[in-house]
Design a protein around this nucleic acid. Structure first.
Lengths: 196, 196
DNA sequence: TCCTTTATAGCACAAACGTGCTATCATCTC
DNA sequence: GAGATGATAGCACGTTTGTGCTATAAAGGA
């Protein structure tokens, strides 16, 4: 018996590679199957349609990010350190995550029009927004924050910083280097706190 | 004689409509020509290839934004008001600009892989970055800014806020409403200034 | 008026695509 | 061992695609 879920993951990763190398429009059933070293028919044994394949590939990106965040041990950190750690797992700070983010952006483009991908995208963005909200709220309630902050506004602002940094890290890795991205995140969180 | 440039603009706008309605992958030569009420052959009289058409459509987005910014009369504003005005012209604050931004994001997805579109994208992002840098620098030099700001860091941070807000306004117009986007921008600029 | 350029139209071709379908081989169950 | 189920392979069909090409209508200059 073959581990069907592992096979699906392999195929989704093959789809990633094709998307990264040749673009989303080349991520056809044929090309992904060839990249994975399988036949078209075999791929279709695991994914009933191309949309199913792309949806799985998209879900894999978010699942990995979610898993990284969940794996963190935040018991011994204050709210600011916790926020920095969690958000660092979402940002594309190394080559692997930059690749994931690039795949994500490519699929997000298609999600503008495909309802299934859109649902996945919205779910992921809601999760990220919640992460930002939790971070802001924890800071505010910890009494270390600048007084008078509007939680909703600061959530949206932090959320924008994260997504903006993600976009920049993908399309201009030369300008938005790992160090720069880290520094901007740290600076922004510092701006929410009373002490520098 | 027909105004060739006006025709090209018409065709590019037809491409926008197809991209918005059916997605980038449906923006074929045939479909765009049909949307514009012309024949394939006629379209190809103005654009030698599909890439040329899409590149023109992409360039039109940035050109319009640039023109809006240039049309501003900033003589009588301080640096903070000037920054807010300029950046407001770049953000998708109404339906029309939201549509432009959506087209932009769709084409940006393809630019991850197409060198010609990538050059256009990079050029536009450089322009936006420069806008942010000018805004930050003007604030800092006007002596109204919080002391000790790192211009490069603040440029990248403002730049991230702008692009993050753009993404959110396109994909979640319900959450990132016009008012919210405006408020976040105002809040961020206020955070760079000494007085609230 | 004639001739050259421009504009529009549309056919033709090869390539790629998604998917329905059947066939073969392996693996597990009884 | 026989039969059922899962896994892999690949063909075939109808569409759509980008682009090369030719043909017709309009316009402008001599």
């Amino acid at each position: 018996m073959v581990d069907a879920d592992a096979r699906r993951t392999e195929l989704a990763e093959a789809a990633w590679r094709v998307i990264l190398r040749d673009g989303l429009e080349r991520a056809s059933v044929r090309n992904v199957a060839r990249e994975a070293g399988l036949s078209m028919g075999s791929l279709r044994h695991y994914f009933g349609s191309q949309t199913e394949l792309l949806a799985f590939a998209m879900g894999l990106v978010t699942e990995r990010a979610r898993r990284r965040v969940r794996a963190l041990d935040l018991a011994s950190c204050g709210p600011r350190q916790a926020a920095e750690s969690m958000l660092s797992e979402v940002l594309p700070l190394d080559a692997e995550r930059r690749a994931e983010a690039e795949v994500w952006l490519a699929l997000t483009g298609k999600a503008l029009v495909d309802p299934i991908l859109r649902a996945l995208r919205d779910e992921a963005y809601d999760g990220l927004r919640e992460l930002c909200e939790r971070s802001v709220r924890a800071l505010v309630e910890s009494d270390g924050a600048v007084p008078g902050l509007d939680v909703d506004l600061e959530t949206e602002r932090l959320y924008a910083v994260i997504d903006g940094l993600t976009v920049h890290a993908v399309i201009r890795p030369d300008l938005a280097s790992t160090e720069t991205v880290k520094a901007v995140l740290a600076r922004h969180l510092a701006g929410l706190c009373r002490r520098a």
